[in-house]
Write a protein that binds this DNA or RNA. Structure first.
Length: 353
DNA sequence: TCTGGGGTCCTAGGACCC
DNA sequence: TCTGGGGTCCTAGGACCC
């Protein structure tokens, strides 16, 4: 029997802020960009449940959040605090898992198959974990218990906050089919729109759709969607991921057309990326720059070197050469960024590719 | 409503090699 | 003279996740 837990911390950033400042408890709290009286540029990172009552959600423009709830308490994120709290909690969870995979700052998958004799014991383990995290860290989480990662993830979201949802093998279809397609991990706004045009609204509709048609329209992803909808997901809890790329980008407070300013900012971003690369012992072969113009159309330019390097001067020069053509033509620029990929560990010899 | 910053994965065309 | 097929790498763009 396979038993997977997905643990998801409830409104994590605001919850940590409340823990540090108990007087904030019960207030509509919005962690994200500076709203600047409704003129701010940026988005909501995370909103407390009280703020969600006003319709405020993660990734919503902060200016819109301000209109919905001008009296809310708006905080800049304190990532150092969140990372510390996250690490403590992950260390608690890890102990109870055969295999452990962190899926972000506020969530993790645990394969607990050999820790339990049956499904009911897995549910009890989840219950104990929720209690242990609350006792030790004074933060709440929600957990999904299921035979697969995908179902566990949908489960953890099903009864938030401080909710436990267990989906047994024999109940999979009954649980899954009535859900909206958007609940499926990997179905975002675009895929939702395309599926709705095909009159596919629920996971049950998706399960009954022709897999050939889904593959034609969505490629390999379409085939997986169909399998997921029918409850098939054999993906494993992966202990270690390797970093594939390192990058930095920045959005200007106002759209700019000053090429010299942009060059200085790009140099600064290159220095930050370089620091990260050195700290992790990487070399890189590919450099990619990104420019987002005034109305959000975004372009990238990439160049692969014939050799891996970690040299800052090469990084800066390459980035400048790549970005220059994108900055001609006096278009106002909203964002610039730089990323390196094709990484190898710098203590390895160079022709590893 | 007007869209952050950190990433991952997929697609598709073209170059190039055997 | 009128054009194969498989594999890999590169580049640009797009969808998605937290």
């Amino acid at each position: 029997m396979r038993a997977i837990l997905h643990v998801d911390l409830d409104a994590f950033f605001p919850a940590v802020e409340v823990r540090e400042h108990p007087e904030l408890k019960g207030k509509p709290l919005i962690v994200g960009a500076d709203p600047k009286g409704g003129k701010g540029r940026g988005v909501v990172s995370s909103a407390s449940y009280e703020a969600r009552k006003y319709g405020i959600r993660s990734a919503m423009p902060i200016s819109r959040a301000w209109k919905l709830c001008p009296k809310g308490i708006y905080l800049r994120p304190h990532f150092d605090l969140y990372i510390k709290a996250s690490n403590s909690i992950m260390n608690i969870l890890k102990i109870h898992a055969d295999k452990f995979e962190q899926g972000g700052i506020d969530e993790a998958y645990l394969d607990v198959s050999s820790q339990v004799e049956d499904f009911d014991q897995a549910v009890q383990l989840a219950r104990n974990l929720m209690q242990e995290v609350l006792d030790k860290e004074n933060l709440t989480c929600s957990i999904g218990v299921a035979p697969s990662k995908m179902l566990a993830k949908i489960g953890s979201d099903y009864r938030k906050p401080y909710g436990l949802t267990a989906v047994k093998e024999e109940d999979v279809k009954e649980f899954l089919f009535p859900l909206k397609i958007r609940k499926m991990p990997g179905v975002g706004p675009k895929t939702e729109g395309r599926l709705k045009e095909l009159k596919i609204e629920t996971i049950g509709d998706l399960a009954c759709a022709s897999p050939q048609m889904l593959t034609r329209l969505f490629g390999v992803w379409g085939a997986r969607l169909h399998e997921f909808a029918n409850g098939f997901d054999h993906s494993e809890v992966i202990e270690e991921y390797e970093t594939k790329s390192v990058g930095r980008d920045t959005t200007f407070e106002r759209d700019v057309d000053d090429a010299e300013l942009m060059q200085r900012i790009l140099d600064g971003l290159a220095e930050e990326v370089h620091e990260d690369v050195i700290a992790n012992g990487f070399k890189f072969k590919t450099i990619t720059v990104k420019v987002r113009y005034q109305h959000f159309d975004t372009h990238t330019r990439a160049k692969s070197l014939s050799f891996p390097t970690n040299d800052l001067a090469i990084l800066k020069n390459s980035a400048l050469r790549l970005i220059s053509p994108l900055l001609r033509g006096n278009r106002k620029v909203r964002l610039i960024g730089i990323r390196v990929s094709n990484l190898i560990l710098s203590n390895q010899q160079s022709d590893t590719r």
